[in-house]
């Protein structure tokens, strides 16, 4: 089994045509839920999809919560960097909402949906909302599943990657997913300039 080729094909094939069906809010794949392994902060990851067939993993240690935000509760502001979508209110706390796809340089998130799927990240004292296409679920990844970042990964996304992980997508197949580094995301130069 060629573990490298398969995800590359997926990325290349899918990344250039990020059209998606509006109804696919949740990935059909049971993601990492299938193995009923013990889920801890150390091994738990949140799997989110950016667009069709492209999913990434976020470490649970830095995820505060996930929410579905109605688009009218998002307040757009002028003169902000392109990835910043606007301000949102979460339990009397005002958060920035950032387009994760844009931030990774993989196009733009489709914003036609009435509801934005938001992952609230907390890195130290900084809290940030990132908008994704869909939240797929939680997976537990063993240490031996981590592999080095393959060369097919777009360069714009490299600064934000921690590594890659092989995740079983079904009984017989598996996919290679990017694992993002929330610290890098928050320290992103695009956001920093603005700050």
């Amino acid at each position: 089994m060629n573990v490298v080729d398969s995800p590359v094909e997926t990325w290349v094939g899918e990344s250039q045509s990020p059209t998606a069906s509006s109804s696919a809010l949740i990935s059909q794949k049971p993601a990492g839920l299938a193995p009923k392994s013990l889920l801890t902060l150390g091994t738990g990851y949140l799997r989110v999809s950016l667009f069709d067939a492209v999913s990434v993993l976020l470490p649970l240690t830095q995820v505060q919560e996930v929410i579905a935000l109605p688009s009218h509760r998002l307040s757009a502001l002028p003169n902000l960097p392109a990835p910043v979508l606007g301000l949102m209110n979460r339990r009397s706390q005002v958060l920035w909402l950032v387009d994760l796809v844009y931030l990774l340089g993989m196009g733009r998130l489709e914003l036609e949906a009435l509801t934005h799927h938001v992952v609230v990240l907390k890195v130290g004292t900084v809290t940030l909302g990132v908008a994704v296409k869909a939240i797929e679920g939680m997976v537990s990844i063993a240490q031996d599943a981590f592999v080095p970042v393959p060369p097919q990964v777009p360069p714009s996304a490299l600064p934000y990657l921690k590594s890659c992980a092989r995740v079983a997508s079904s009984e017989t197949s598996s996919a290679l997913l990017m694992v993002l580094n929330p610290d890098a995301l928050i320290q992103s130069p695009i956001l920093q300039i603005q700050n």
């Binding site: 109804s23 809010l25 949740i26 013990l38 889920l39 801890t40 902060l41 738990g44 949140l46 649970l60 995820v63 505060q64 919560e65 996930v66 929410i67 579905a68 509801t115 799927h117 939240i135 679920g137 939680m138």
Partner: peptide
């Protein structure tokens, strides 16, 4: 569908909280 999605999100949040709680919340 909306309700199912919300439910899923709540379940994820609950899972996050459970993971954060540690062994006791398995």
């Amino acid at each position: 569908n909306q309700i199912a999605m919300q439910t899923n999100l709540l379940a994820i949040n609950a899972g996050i909280e459970a993971a954060r709680a540690g062994e006791e919340a398995q």
